[in-house]
Amino acid sequence: MYDRSVLADGFVVWDDRPADATHEVAVGGGHKVRVYSYGEGDETVFLLNGGPGLPCNYLRAPHLPLVEAGYRMVVHDQLGTGASDHPDDPSLWTLGRYVEEVEAVLAALDLKRIHFLGHSWGGWCGIEYALTYPQRIASMILANTAADIPHLLTEIERLRGAMGHETVQMMQRFEAMGNYDHPAYQAVVDLLDFRHIRRLPERPKPAADSKAGFNYPIFLAVQGPNEYHYTGSIRTWNRIDQLHRFTWPTLVIQGQHDVLTPACGMRIFNALPNGEIRIFQNSSHSAFYEEPQAYRQTLLDFLGRQRATG
Rank of each mutant, 00 (worst) to 15 (best):
Y228M: 11
I268W: 02
H63D: 10
H257L: 06
D110M: 03
G123C: 08
A138F: 01
F288A: 07
V25E: 13
S84E: 10
Q186N: 11
F194C: 04
T167C: 10
M73L: 15
R198N: 13
H119I: 14
E155T: 01
E157Q: 07
M140A: 12
S120I: 11
G232L: 07
R136I: 01
L153T: 13
S233Y: 05
Q306D: 08
G51I: 06
D190V: 13
R267Q: 02
G255Y: 03
D193L: 07
P217N: 08
F280T: 00
W121S: 01
S84A: 10
P150I: 03
E24Q: 15
A207K: 09
D89F: 02
R203V: 11
R305D: 04
G53R: 01
L142S: 06
F302I: 06
A221R: 12
E202G: 07
P249M: 13
A287W: 01
E43G: 10
E157D: 06
N179S: 12
Y58W: 10
T132E: 11
Y58C: 14
D241G: 13
D148L: 10
G70K: 09
N282R: 15
N144E: 14
T154A: 09
Y228K: 07
G213F: 09
R4S: 14
G96C: 03
G96A: 12
L192Q: 09
R97N: 04
D85A: 05
E155W: 01
D20A: 00
T236V: 11
L260W: 03
V189S: 02
S91N: 04
Q293M: 12
D16R: 08
M266R: 11
A147K: 01
L131Q: 02
N179R: 15
P55A: 09
W121C: 01
K211C: 03
S91I: 01
P134H: 02
A143S: 15
P204S: 07
A207I: 02
Y129R: 00
Q186K: 14
H285S: 13
I114L: 12
G50I: 06
G53H: 06
L111D: 12
L48M: 10
L272V: 08
S210F: 12
P134S: 04
H119K: 06
T250R: 13
W14T: 14
F214G: 03
R72P: 02
A184W: 06
D209V: 13
L272R: 00
G126C: 00
I268Y: 03
N144V: 11
G10P: 09
W93S: 00
Q172C: 02
R136S: 03
Y133G: 12
G224M: 04
P52I: 05
L117W: 01
P273N: 08
I240V: 13
P201E: 05
S91H: 10
L142M: 12
Q256N: 15
E227T: 08
E43Q: 15
A143M: 14
A263G: 01
W14K: 15
I279V: 15
M266E: 09
V35R: 07
S120E: 08
P206N: 13
L159I: 14
L303E: 05
G178C: 14
L192P: 00
T22E: 07
F288W: 10
L300P: 04
I218F: 14
G96Y: 00
R160P: 02
A184P: 02
G126N: 00
M140L: 08
E68M: 05
L117I: 04
A61M: 04
L48R: 03
V13G: 08
G123D: 12
I279A: 07
T231G: 05
G51C: 09
